[in-house]
Design a protein around this nucleic acid. Structure first.
Length: 414
RNA sequence: GCGGGUGUAGCUCAGUUGGUUAGAGCGCCAGAUUGUGGAUCUGGAUGUCGCCGGUUCAAGCCCGGUCACUCGCCCCA
């Protein structure tokens, strides 16, 4: 531990950053509510098993990237690296499968032990939704539309591109996988070392390799489209048509894939060029096999998650701080009265900055620094008349106002 | 986990071939101004030069290590 530093990959959120962050979370929450996705908050940590089952024990993720520890009772627990597993666990352990279909929205911190980069922290935040219990394309369309609506609500939709693909159903996918493995095994010498490993663990991932040589091979690789059965084709066609009808523009990216087996059909990502290598800002897909993998019933589902820090960086400008009313007492009697006046105004809904010390000049400076819209000067003269001097700090105009009229006179600054 | 770049005041940065007491702007504090902010003027405080070690008569500067940030790779549930 070197002095007092924040843990690597964590940081404090305050000021402008905090306002950006909160705007992302609140906009998402509001719009999700309009789509009737109910907010859910699951615990920040779960039994490690919850994440291990969904990811498979052998993956890098489980062995290298999770914050896992044994608690004092001897239980193996993990800080959640993502939100879906917790929601699915809640669905199973809470008996929510009886109430399907269900639509959930969540927001909160996630933890991954990764090398930090811009837009990638060890403690970061996600917004996300899970649309559970519906196997038909309208759920995919509505869920993607919600993502687009949130990006639009944040004013960042134009900075992103929606890419979409289908992974087909299990039958199509295993046929394609076999063909792909066959093809790459024939060119194994030309594959990058990374992709040779992928060939064994996660062959679909070779499709989105960034290696030049790999890309050349990928260009001639078998196409997923040729292995999709008619049901899968029809499903994808309905999803894309539905998006078109809503005026949501997208490009089909046949190299957009997911590694794990419980993913199927729709996969999509909203990406941006504005954030360097960390281009995905909101991504998801259909995961009909996940709940069953975790030991629950078969529950078809689709969802997505979005990175709050990345979205916050995309916001054109930080939301402004609310401009308060500053109460400036002059003299000991006014000093005693000022907190009462502030309390009345605060109860009436005003943001009130109450100066704690200093002469009038100091407090006016403080009011200015707090970006106050008006200052209420309360001195002996005003108190005798049951009034306060209202000074507009933008125009410099001021006039004395009876305390009883204050709420009305300040109404436009609320 | 792998590779590159960067660490000097709260912030943005300057600091010559290694040479005496480490600087600027912004911000901060005080005063000009004990019933009026912003502007101006005057004055003031900034600091383990990221940290540890080495080389040297002498290190902010050179070398090694380390920590953090950053860009990319891996990964991306």
């Amino acid at each position: 531990m070197a002095g007092l530093q924040p843990v690597r990959g964590t940081h404090d959120l305050l000021g402008e950053d905090m306002r950006r962050h909160r705007k992302v979370a609140e906009t998402a929450r509001d719009i999700a509510a309009r789509y009737c996705f109910e907010e859910i908050a699951t615990p920040i940590f779960e039994f490690s098993e919850v994440f291990k089952r969904t990811l498979g024990d052998t993956s890098d993720i489980v062995t290298k990237e999770m914050y896992s520890f044994t608690d004092r009772g001897g239980d193996d627990v993990t800080l959640r690296p993502e939100g879906t597993a917790g929601v699915c666990r809640a669905l199973i352990s809470g008996g929510l499968a009886q109430r399907l279909p269900l639509k959930f929205f969540y927001y909160g911190p996630m933890f991954r032990y990764e090398r930090p980069q811009k837009g990638r922290l060890r403690q970061f935040h996600q917004i996300g939704v899970e649309n559970l219990g519906v196997a038909e394309p309208p759920a995919d369309i509505d869920t993607i539309a919600l993502g687009a609506a949130i990006l639009d609500g944040l004013g960042v939709l134009a900075k992103t591109r929606l890419e979409i693909n289908t992974l087909g159903d299990a039958e199509s996918r295993s046929a394609y996988r076999a063909a792909l493995v066959g093809y790459f095994q024939g060119h194994v010498g030309a594959l990058s070392p990374d992709s040779r490993l992928r060939l064994e663990r996660n062959p679909l991932r070779i499709l989105d390799s960034k290696d030049e040589g790999d890309r050349k091979l990928v260009a001639d690789a078998p196409l997923f489209t040729d292995f999709l059965n008619s049901e899968s084709k029809e499903f994808f066609s309905q999803v894309t048509k539905g998006l078109e009808r809503l005026g949501i523009t997208f490009t089909i990216n046949p190299r957009l894939v997911r590694g794990l087996d419980y993913y199927c059909h729709t996969a999509f990502e909203f990406t941006t060029e504005a954030l360097g290598a960390q281009g995905a800002v909101l991504a998801g897909g259909r995961y009909d096999g996940l709940v069953a993998t975790m030991g629950g019933p078969t529950v078809p589902a689709i969802g997505w998650a979005g990175g709050v820090e990345r979205l916050a960086m995309l916001l054109a400008e930080a939301p402004p701080q609310p401009r308060p009313v500053a109460v400036v007492p002059i003299g000991p009697e006014a000093e005693a009265e000022a907190p009462l006046l502030a309390a009345r105004l605060r109860k009436a809904g005003f943001a009130v900055e109450l100066g704690y010390r200093g002469n009038v000049g100091k407090r006016m400076k403080a009011a200015n620094k707090a970006n106050a819209r008006v200052a209420l000067l309360l001195g002996e003269d005003e108190m005798k008349r049951g009034a306060a001097t209202v000074r507009d700090l933008d125009t410099g105009e001021q006039s004395e106002v009876p305390l009883s009229d204050l709420n009305d006179r300040l109404a436009r600054f609320r």
